[in-house]
């Protein structure tokens, strides 16, 4: 049960959504953009999230797109992870999406919710970081398309009045060799100890991580170390030295255990891709 009142709005255009946000704010309200709602309802019940108005984005046509052309894949932010999995237009994204939560939860969890939410794993963002994707963002300033690397640095840097509309990927990325592994403490549906996603482009490995640090990341320095002509064990040891922050140490797993798991996950992912052309 959510222990406070929330007014629910369901706009049908991007402009209406943005205007609603502004007008509610002007009235002293604390509005929140709303997708699948799973994170908000969970955190609100625990007293860790508050909004007195939610603006549901699921009726915005631009946010519901799931399209493939010869040149580009477009994923609307309000598309569910299950729909992405079933469409399978970007196989690495399919693998990342189908490891989030459980099947029934994924019927509700949206792409935008996974990438923009407060729970920091954001596993669906990893393939997009690897594919140098572009994000379409709506806000008071209008609708803008930007590189994901400008906007996603540890988390999505959006102002409260902005929301993610779409993520776009060059179609060429959908056919590249790739690998994905998610290692949990136990079971098949929980948060990761370590998730590693990898793509091989132009003979070079690209890797992105979740669960290792308290934010997902792709690091060019790590990729440079991973692509050196050294034995695999030496390259993995070099990668560990270049992690961007101390390794997570929490109830899911100690830092020492996560590092142990990370080394094995990297070994499996690289081994799977080294032979690929």
């Amino acid at each position: 049960m959510i222990p406070f009142d929330v007014a629910y709005y369901r706009p049908s255009t991007i402009e209406e959504a943005v205007q609603l946000f502004s007008s509610l704010e002007a009235k002293g309200k604390r509005p929140l953009y709303y997708g699948g709602g799973t994170e908000f309802i969970t955190l609100a019940r625990l007293g860790r999230a508050f909004a007195d108005a939610v603006i549901d984005l699921k009726s915005l046509p631009e946010c519901r797109i799931l399209s493939v052309t010869a040149h580009e894949l477009t994923f609307g932010a309000a598309v569910s992870l299950t729909a992405i999995e079933e469409a399978n237009s970007f196989p690495l994204l399919t693998k990342a999406a189908r490891e989030v939560a459980d099947r029934t939860a994924r019927n509700q969890i949206t792409l935008g919710g996974n990438i923009c939410g407060r729970i920091f794993y954001h596993e669906a963002v990893l393939p997009f970081l690897l594919a140098d994707s572009r994000v379409v963002i709506a806000g008071k300033e209008g609708i803008n398309e930007r590189s994901i690397h400008e906007v996603f640095q540890q988390y999505m840097h959006l102002s409260p009045s902005q929301f993610l509309v779409q993520v776009k990927v060059d179609a060429a990325y959908s056919n590249l060799p790739h690998a994905h592994t998610k290692r949990r403490q136990q079971g098949n549906t929980g948060y990761p100890l370590v998730t590693v996603a990898a793509l091989k482009k132009d003979g070079k490995l690209r890797v992105a991580f979740s669960g290792v640090c308290p934010f997902p990341f792709r690091s060019l320095e790590i990729e440079e170390r991973l692509n050196r002509t050294l034995p695999l064990g030496a390259r993995i040891a070099s990668v560990i030295e270049a992690l961007p922050s101390p390794v997570l140490d929490d109830i899911e797993g100690s830092a020492k255990y996560r590092l142990f798991v990370l080394k094995h996950a990297l070994l499996d992912v690289i081994t799977a891709l080294e032979g690929e052309s």
Partner: peptide, 12 residues
């Protein structure tokens, strides 16, 4: 579609 009804607002 299967949905966990504790995670969806009725008004939705």
């Amino acid at each position: 579609t299967p949905i966990k009804s504790c995670m969806m607002l009725a008004i939705e």
